[in-house]
Structures are given as structure tokens and as C-alpha cells.
Amino acid sequence: MKNKWLSVPYIVWMAIFVVAPLILVLIYAFTSRSGGFTVENFTTMAQYVTVFGRSFFLALIATLVCILLGYPLAYYLAREGAGMRRMATMLIMLPMWMNFLLRTYSWMSILENTGLLNTLFQKIGLFALINSVFGTNIEYFHMINTQGAIVLGMVYNFLPFMVLPIYTVIDKIDYRVIEAAQDLGANTRQVFRKVIFPLSLPGVLSGITMVFVPAVSTFAIPRLLGGGMVTMLGDLIEAQFMGSAYNPYLGSAISLVMMVVVLICMAVMNRFGEGEEGAVVL
């Protein structure tokens, strides 16, 4: 059974299609349009500082909201019976089988100025009420094409990636540990704070990684829900590779910086949490 040669084709494949492409990004980042060595790609990036800041800020908010919604959900879920738990995890996975663009597109029709939510508010007389109280003259809430809509899209799309790892970790906690804490006189709150929460931290950490990384680099969500008004890092990179501003050298440099900043964030975070095994898979 011990056949280590079976790993060779895989190692070769990964060397060609994972490692080599990343080395290419590294090389391109330090290459000028004419082909020589340059650091100009990095100096021109200074003009995009606001885009970097905005991306990290919005992704951070989305990650926080995901923790606030996802942690209680995972915790409550772990307390349900077996049948209910199986159905709930299935329900969380199910939307992922529809491509995330389909689901994001649906939010467009909900959030539009003449969309479902505004129509609903109109029907229940919310606008009439506000207008008569405040003397304003509004016909809709402006929700789409805002930064809020982008954060909503991120939370909506990446919430399962927060819930599932936390749920997996809490579910695996040995019930006897909790009983032991109770025997030693801990009340429900203390059991949670001193036992369950610390033990669930690895799940939270991998959840944060799985939400923050796609959130900071997304370009489809800001395009659909931000209407192209709000530029994020992903848009910037996409424009360098596919857009009119074709410049893979600058695009590689931005990707590289983004990757390094994300890696630093993760390293700092893992140091904090004494991170055990990195990625908990679904």
C-alpha cells in the first residue's frame, strides 16, 4: 500500500500549474513593458492607495458581520438534533450549487430603486409615513450601487464559508469536557466563555480566512451591486488583464502586493490564535 511514487504525477502537476504560475506573477511584477527589470510597477501603485484601503476596509466589515451572524448560527446548529443538523448543513451548502453570480444578480432586483424592497416599502406606506413626518419627498431608498450593497453581497455569498468551519469545530467538541465544566460549577455563560469559545477558535480563524480572502479580492460583486461606481482591488487587477488598460505587469504587481498583505494578516492572526491546522475543509 505504501506507494510514494503515486504522488509524483501530482507533484509535477502542482509544480507546473500552481508554483510556476505564481513565480510568473513574481517575475511579471518586476518587469517593464519593454521587458527589463523595474520597480516602477510598485511606485505607480501609490495612486491606488485608496482602492487598497477601501477593499481591506469593506472586506473587514463583511468578515465581522459574517462572524456576528455565522458564529451564533453555527453554535445553535450544533445544539440541534441529528436530523435537523443534517438538513441545516445541507441547506447551507445548497445555494453554493447555484453559481454565486446567479444569487448576486438576484440581489440586484431586490435592491434596485424600483426593486422589490422599495416596492414593498411603498406598499406598506413607509415612504408616505416618512414623508409626512419629516416633510421630505422620497420615493425610494437608494440601496443599490452603494458600498453597503457590496458588503451585503459579500456577507450573503461568503457566510456559508464562516458557518461551516465553526460548526464543524463546535460539533467535534467532546461533550464530556462541557459536562466536566458544569460539574465544576460553571454556569451556561461560563461554559461558553471558558470552554466552548476557546475550543471553537480554530474554526473561527479558518472561517475568517475563507471569508476575508475572497471578499478582499472580489470583482464581480462590486461590479453587479456597486454598479462599477466603487472600484475595488479585484476590479483594478481585472482591468489590467482583461480590460482596456491591458498591463499584466502592473496587474501582477498589484496581485503580488495584495497576496503579501493578506499573508501577513493571516500570519499575525494565526500567531494570535495559536492557529492549529490551517484550513478546515467544509
Binding site: 508554483v19 505564481l22 506573477v25 511579471y28 475572497p214 479580492s217 497576496m259 493571516m266
Partner: peptide, 17 residues
């Protein structure tokens, strides 16, 4: 690497290759 890297970096690097 492909699991933790941002999709856009994976995509861009593969397209370069």
C-alpha cells in the same frame, strides 16, 4: 496554496502561464 490564495490570483497566474 490554491485553497487559501485569492481566486483572482490563481486565475491571473494561470492565465499568464
Amino acid at each position: 496554496i490554491p485553497l487559501t490564495n485569492a481566486d483572482i490570483v490563481t486565475g491571473v497566474s494561470l492565465s499568464l502561464l
